Amino acid sequence: NKFNKEMRNAYWEILHLPNLNEEQKNAFIQSLYDDPSQSANLLAEAKKLNDAQA
């Protein structure tokens, strides 16, 4: 299933973003579980936030 793979990839990438705190990571990961079809968008948002907090 495409979403499972996308979701897993997004999950791991978000988990390893160095500039997000636990609360931010948890919020993105919760959103992933709530709507796996948004994995790519959530990952993009997480990366933007990560870069902004660098």
Rank of each mutant, 00 (worst) to 15 (best):
Q24V: 06
N21M: 13
N9Q: 14
P18I: 10
Q30D: 09
Y11E: 05
M7N: 01
S37G: 08
P36H: 03
S37W: 10
I29V: 03
A52S: 11
A40Q: 10
S39G: 03
S31H: 15
P36A: 08
I14K: 01
Q30F: 09
L43Q: 11
A40I: 13
D34S: 12
Q38H: 04
E45Q: 12
M7E: 14
A44D: 07
L43I: 02
L49K: 11
L15E: 03
E6R: 02
Q24F: 11
A52F: 08
Q53W: 08
N21Y: 08
R8T: 08
E45D: 09
F28H: 07
K5Q: 10
N41Q: 09
E6L: 07
D51K: 09
H16Q: 04
K2L: 06
L32P: 00
S31A: 12
I14H: 00
S31P: 04
I29S: 04
E13N: 14
P36R: 02
K25E: 04
S37L: 10
P18G: 13
Q30L: 06
E23N: 14
E13I: 08
L43D: 04
L32V: 08
N19S: 12
A27Y: 06
F3N: 15
H16Y: 06
N9I: 14
I29E: 04
L49A: 09
N4Q: 09
L15D: 02
L43S: 11
A44Y: 06
A46Q: 00
N21S: 14
E22Y: 15
N4G: 14
D35P: 02
N1S: 02
E6I: 12
F28I: 05
A46R: 00
I14E: 00
H16E: 02
Q24D: 09
Q24P: 02
E13T: 12
N19L: 09
A40G: 07
L15A: 04
N4H: 09
N26D: 09
S31F: 12
L20K: 00
N4V: 03
A27W: 08
L42G: 03
S39K: 05
K48E: 08
D51N: 10
L49W: 09
F28S: 08
